[in-house]
Write a protein that binds this DNA or RNA. Structure first.
Length: 660
RNA sequence: GGGCUCAUAGCUCAGUUGGACAGAGCAACGGAUUUCUAAUCCGUAGGUCGUAGGUUCGAGCCCUACUGGGCCUACCA
């Protein structure tokens, strides 16, 4: 039910007499919102105050005038003026009940309308590098992207999801080189993906070590510079002790010196420790300049070298299979999975086109697009002739344009790539993709309890599958705790227990990710998210299970579904009204959540709904109500709550269980 | 050096795009119960929204400066 637009439509003609410009009118209408002050109003219009200058009247007088022309008698039980000029609306319980009954008659869509102007979206999300082990960092893009896809589709838009797999980059050079030099044939035969991931780590470790070694002179130079600067600014500051800016410069320079010192020491320590492993050291010697060798393998692959291409063709299906097993477990599907490799043949033409348009130029042997407002150009072809992800991204956008002609193109990618996307969008607009709205749906970093990017104590990145297992086993420990099961009188089969633990555990992971505003970093705390009270998936899933329990029990006590499915809904007790108001807001909330693609608007709504239901549950007995009419009405309200919770969780990609 | 971003209760985070006394969860404290699954409910306490100015009828939100963290900054993705 679109309550806001209905109420706004009643205000519109009144406000239009003062606000003749459509934009001014639209922004005034947006000042009509669901009220935060539930003790004062259900909805409120904050329209009188901003008009006081224009109309040269006190806001209260303006509010009076609005009120005299406003007819909401069919919807509201009271319309009043409060504070400095707020127009407060209270919905009539009858109208509220009528709307909720309509929603209840439509269990699939809950009377949520389809978009009046449906758009075509292309959404690019998840997009992991297939040869690297998938880790917790990939989950945000995957979970947020999946949820946005589901919500937009539910609202009636056409959404094309594409998993832009990193299946063509430098990491393949790494595993190709590693396969040629470090493979264990037996291990590869038994579990290719595991062996490839081991190989990947071996290569990565050597490159990391060699980089650290070759970086030392640079760090030493930086140290020296910092020392000089610090000494210089100390001298300057001493000469003019009153100058605050100089004193500050000195402090900054000193701090930078400290940092440079620290970094150098850390790097030396790492090298020293790693060098103790004689075998590793020997291996690193044998494969000197590994970074270069890897780039050569990559470049050979890209230029069609038969051996490397054959290896790539052998590796990719294995890698994909591994990744698909994670998607299957998370119940996530994509319409397309054109990886980076799909665009490879198109890249030379992209660069040619950029050169022909004089957008790109040669610089230091590379081909670059220089853009206003940025120091560094966007490089589309390297000195060695290889293409970069920028080039692929341009080719991808052109392909999508031709294939899908989207109105909106969403990229659900880490916020660190913000500048890359700004540049990319700049270039895309310049080559004529101007009618497509390009949007980087960025998200923050997942951190550990220490506030730093999530890693295990040893520093290794935590694998995704292991993390999911941990969540599921954590859920099992709490949900299937024998004490609790005995206390609640529930008897689950082993299979049901497993099903519950899986649903709750995976829900916990997804929910923890979605319930934070996507733009902020968040601290990943497995213990907390698997706990079953507070703002967690389990609390909502539990509320759902309670709704189902009541409905089952009603059936058992002889309330046949057809006795109450069409019974009148009467909202009298305040928990009933509060819950009803919340359920009424479902559609407005979904639309709000997609204004800026924020799934946390949905999680917050569901958490509030679950809390209001718990309150209702506590204070209003359904099966033991004063009258049979009341029981029937409450059964209907419970059922609608049940459907709303389930649909809301479904739109987040989170499942429910009938008992838990 | 340039750019982006963040700073809200002891902790983790919201804050409907500028509206009423700043909210929730966790932790703490005090109540409720032999339950339609207590994994619950009701209540108490906890905040000069990093600092200082500015714009506005009105600022956690917008502008400026400052402080302190994170990230990016030419051939990785």
């Amino acid at each position: 039910m679109r309550v806001l637009s209905l109420i706004r439509s009643r205000f519109a003609p009144i406000l239009a007499t003062w606000l003749t410009e459509p934009e001014a009118l639209a922004s005034a209408l947006e000042r009509i919102v669901a009220s935060r002050e539930s003790h004062l109003a259900d909805y409120q219009a904050n329209v009188a105050m901003p008009l006081q200058k224009k109309l040269e009247k006190p806001p209260l007088a303006i509010a009076e005038e609005i009120l005299s022309k406003l007819d909401l008698s069919d919807i509201c039980s009271s319309v009043s003026i409060a504070g400095q000029g707020y127009v407060n609306l209270r919905l009539s319980p009858e109208w509220l009940a009528k709307c909720l009954m309509e929603a209840h008659l439509d269990p699939e869509r809950l009377a949520v309308g389809l978009a009046a102007n449906p758009k075509t979206y292309v959404i690019d999300f998840s997009s992991p590098n297939v040869a690297k082990p998938m880790h917790v960092g990939h989950i945000r893009s995957t979970v947020i992207g999946d949820s946005v896809t589901k919500i937009l589709r539910f609202l009636g838009h056409s959404v094309i999801s594409d998993n832009h797999l990193g299946d063509w980059g430098t990491q393949f050079g790494m595993i190709i080189y590693g396969y040629k030099n470090f493979r264990d044939d037996v291990a590869f035969g038994q579990a290719p993906v595991l062996e490839l991931s081991r190989i990947y780590r071996v290569v990565q470790k050597i490159i990391g070590f060699q980089d650290a070694v070759s970086n030392i002179p640079k760090l030493e130079l930086a140290m020296e510079r910092a020392e000089e600067k610090s000494a210089e600014s100390k001298f300057k500051s001493a000469a003019a002790p009153q100058d605050k800016k100089l004193a500050k410069d000195f402090a900054t320079a000193f701090k930078q010196l400290d940092e440079a010192n620290d970094e150098l020491a850390k790097s030396k320590k790492y090298i020293e420790e790693t060098s103790r492993d004689a075998e590793f050291l020997e291996c690193s010697k044998q494969h000197s300049q590994l970074g270069q060798r890897v780039l050569k393998e990559t470049s050979k692959l890209h230029s069609g070298d038969a051996e490397n291409l054959k290896l790539w063709e052998a590796f990719v299906p294995n890698c994909k299979e591994e990744i698909h097993s994670v998607y299957k477990r998370l119940n996530i599907q994509f319409d397309h999975e054109f990886g980076e490799s799909y665009y490879h043949d198109l890249l030379p033409a992209v660069v040619e086109d950029l050169l022909a348009r004089s957008l790109a130029v040669q610089s230091d042997g590379a081909i670059c697009v220089f853009l206003d407002g940025y120091d560094a150009p966007m490089i589309v072809r390297k000195q060695d002739g290889a293409f970069l992800y920028s080039t692929t991204d341009i080719a991808t956008a052109i392909f999508r344009e031709r294939e899908f002609a989207p109105d909106v193109s969403l990229y659900v990618v880490d916020h660190r790539q913000g500048e890359h996307f700004q540049k990319l969008f700049d270039v895309l607009r310049k080559i004529g993709l101007s009618h497509t709205e390009l949007k980087h749906v960025e998200f923050g970093t997942v951190c550990g309890k220490d506030g730093k990017p999530y890693k295990t104590r040893s520093g290794a990145v935590v694998g995704l599958n292991a993390m999911l297992d941990e969540a599921v086993s954590g859920a099992w420990d709490v949900v299937c705790n024998p004490d609790r099961l005995q206390g609640s009188g529930l008897a689950f089969s082993e299979a049901e227990k497993r099903q519950i633990a899986e649903t709750v555990g995976l829900g916990a992971i997804k929910y923890a990710d979605l319930c934070h505003n996507r733009t902020s970093n968040y601290i990943f705390d497995m213990e907390k998210m698997v706990q079953l009270h507070g703002n967690t998936a389990a609390y909502i899933q539990y509320s759902y299970a309670r709704t189902r329990s009541i409905l089952r029990k009603a059936q058992a006590e002889g309330f046949e579904t057809n006795q109450w499915q069409l019974a009148p809904l009467v909202l009298s007790a305040s928990p009933e009204v509060n819950l009803g108001l919340q359920l009424l807001r479902f559609e407005d909330m979904l639309n709000q959540s997609m204004v800026d693609y924020l799934p946390n608007v949905v999680t917050e709504y569901l958490f509030d709904t679950a809390k209001l239901f718990s309150s209702f549950y506590d204070q209003c007995s359904v099966l033991d109500a004063e009258t049979p009419e009341s029981t029937r009405s409450r059964l209907r309200l419970t059922d609608l709550t049940s459907l709303t919770l389930r649909k809301g969780l479904e739109l987040l990609g989170i499942g429910v269980v009938e008992r838990m």
